[in-house]
């Protein structure tokens, strides 16, 4: 499945996605994607952080509480974190957060963790597409996170 297959009514609900990208590979890959003019969904909004290890559940919940449809962290590849293990720490926290969402009866696809490689724009765009597709699946199944509140 690709982003083109998503129905317009679902796509309409995907308005704001906050993506925390680390200062190293994350930002690097998004810049590379930009330079290569690789189109992706305009709902993707990138926040620059020093390392994904800097992003805690606080930031993620802040984003969701302020209207984001989904949040993702994009860091360096596993084993290549520029600050040793920030991406792994972030992954563990997101794992717990996903579990919280499941326990609340939501889809666990509203928060996600990815990696990308600075030299490859397509990995960043792949992450974004994957994010949008997962979100669209979640919305199709049970609506957005904002629904019903």
């Amino acid at each position: 499945m690709s982003c083109e297959d998503i129905e317009p009514e679902v796509m309409e609900k995907i308005q704001d996605i906050v993506v925390f990208m680390c200062n190293e590979c994350g930002q690097g890959s998004a810049n590379t994607a930009g330079v290569a003019r690789m189109a992706y969904n305009p709902a993707i909004r990138i926040v620059r952080v020093q390392c994904t290890g800097q992003v805690g559940p606080i930031q993620i919940m802040d984003a969701l509480n302020n209207g984001a449809d989904a949040v993702a962290c994009v860091g360096c590849c596993l084993g290549a974190c520029h600050f040793f293990n920030g991406n792994i720490l972030s992954m563990h926290r997101i794992k717990l957060l996903k579990k919280v969402f499941k326990e609340l009866g939501y889809s666990d696809q509203f928060v996600n963790q990815y990696t990308s490689r600075a030299a490859e724009g397509e990995t960043a765009v792949g992450d974004f597409e994957d994010l949008v597709i997962r979100l669209s699946n979640a919305i199709r199944e049970e609506g957005t996170i904002k629904d019903g509140c």
């Binding site: 596993l78 293990n85 992954m91 926290r93 717990l96 919280v100 990815y114 990696t115 597409e129 994957d130």
Partner: peptide
């Protein structure tokens, strides 16, 4: 939650690849 997630940071976990962009699909 943030703290406990961090405390678990050393435990190795399985990772997987996503089909899109071939990045590690984690968590």
């Amino acid at each position: 939650l943030g703290m406990f997630g961090t405390l678990m940071g050393n435990i190795e976990v399985a990772t997987e690849h996503s089909e899109l962009g071939a990045t590690d699909k984690l968590a």
